[in-house]
Computed example of a mutant assay.
Amino acid sequence: MKKWAYALIVMAATLWGIISIFVKGLAEYGFTTLQIVAIRVVLSAIILTFYFAIKDRQLLKIEPAHGKYFIGTGILSIAFFNWCYFTAMRETSVAVAAILLYTAPAFVLLLARLLFGERLTTGKIAALVVTFFGCALVVGILPSPQGAMPLYGLVSGLGAGFGYALYSVFSKFALRHYSALTVTVYTFVFAAAVMLPASGLWEVRTLLFHWPVVAYSIGFSLFSTILAYLCYTVALAYIETGRAAIVATLEPIVATTVGIMFFGEQLNNWQLLGIILVIAAVVSVQRNRE
């Protein structure tokens, strides 16, 4: 079963890596970044809630006092990092946005130090330095700052990484009381509760019934969200979290490939080196944590 577990992680990383196809497809129909985030989390929340209401209603029971954990995972993490990530895709490129998202492990190290008192070893510090250097190459600050990307794109990408890191922090508290499936369901429910009114999605509701938009929305929610998360969650029952996270670094590679093949994006040699350095740092961090 362990081989199948690794296959599931590869599947999850691939499905996450093709997110840009759905994001850019919806953007072409005039949806704003907030509306695209809303489509993802609202549809996912509806499908997940309906599924578990039929399969096992016990998974939907939570204590009201624990809502604070899902405010963290759903609103401060999922809603925020999705908005930042999709904004970074628009302002930079799919490949650059994906690699900035993968600064998350570096933020996790820093947050774990501040909140949980985890020790920063020499290996962890080295990984942080390599991550910073790799990102500097990807965004163009190095070797020459003349070709650097707009500040807004850079901040959005780093915001995505920070928001993604927050999920590890808040879910750590939530998982003390609930299963991973319950945490996933309520993460999207809480994110949807905020994003639906904030996005103004109802103002463009007529667009939602166009068949291409329906196809993009269902693919976005069903494949790159629900199926991806379920694959990853099931696999975690059979392999260590650290190993799973290492395999999941396939995601930015897939995202880069999609950007080049579907959207005609180009990367110079320095950017490619930066991507390799960031992925190497992520692998190093996960091995260290394991």
Rank of each mutant, 00 (worst) to 15 (best):
F132L: 13
H177F: 01
L230M: 12
R287Q: 00
G264L: 12
L267A: 03
I71F: 00
P150E: 00
V10N: 02
I36P: 15
A248N: 04
Y51M: 07
T225F: 03
F52N: 01
L272E: 04
F80Q: 10
I54V: 09
F70K: 14
V194T: 10
A95I: 11
I218T: 08
F86V: 15
V183T: 13
V41T: 12
A191M: 01
T103G: 07
L8E: 04
Q58H: 14
G17H: 09
L128A: 03
E203R: 05
V130M: 15
L222A: 12
T225W: 06
L272N: 09
P145L: 03
V169D: 04
A38M: 08
Q286M: 11
T187I: 12
T184D: 04
P252S: 09
I275F: 08
S156F: 04
G274Q: 05
L137I: 06
W16A: 01
F50Q: 14
V213H: 09
N288T: 15
A192E: 05
V130R: 05
I141E: 08
G67H: 03
S144K: 15
F173I: 00
T92L: 14
A280M: 09
I125S: 15
G219R: 14
L277Y: 10
T33G: 11
L196C: 00
S199R: 00
S168L: 15
V37E: 10
G140R: 11
V129N: 11
L166S: 02
R40Y: 03
L48M: 02
R90Q: 15
F31Q: 14
G242C: 05
T225L: 09
E251Y: 09
Y229I: 09
A79S: 07
I78Q: 01
V42A: 04
A281M: 08
M89V: 06
V234L: 13
A95W: 01
S221G: 10
M149N: 12
Y51W: 13
K61L: 08
T73K: 02
L110M: 08
G30M: 04
V185E: 00
L267R: 06
E28N: 06
I18H: 06
L59F: 04
A79P: 12
E251N: 05
A191W: 02
G219H: 07
A45V: 13
A79I: 10
I78Y: 02
I36Y: 09
V37I: 11
T182F: 01
R40G: 13
M149Q: 14
Y232T: 07
L114E: 05
F52R: 02
R205T: 02
L76M: 01
S77T: 10
V169G: 07
G67K: 00
L236I: 12
V234G: 07
A180V: 08
L43N: 10
L114H: 08
L110Q: 05
L201R: 03
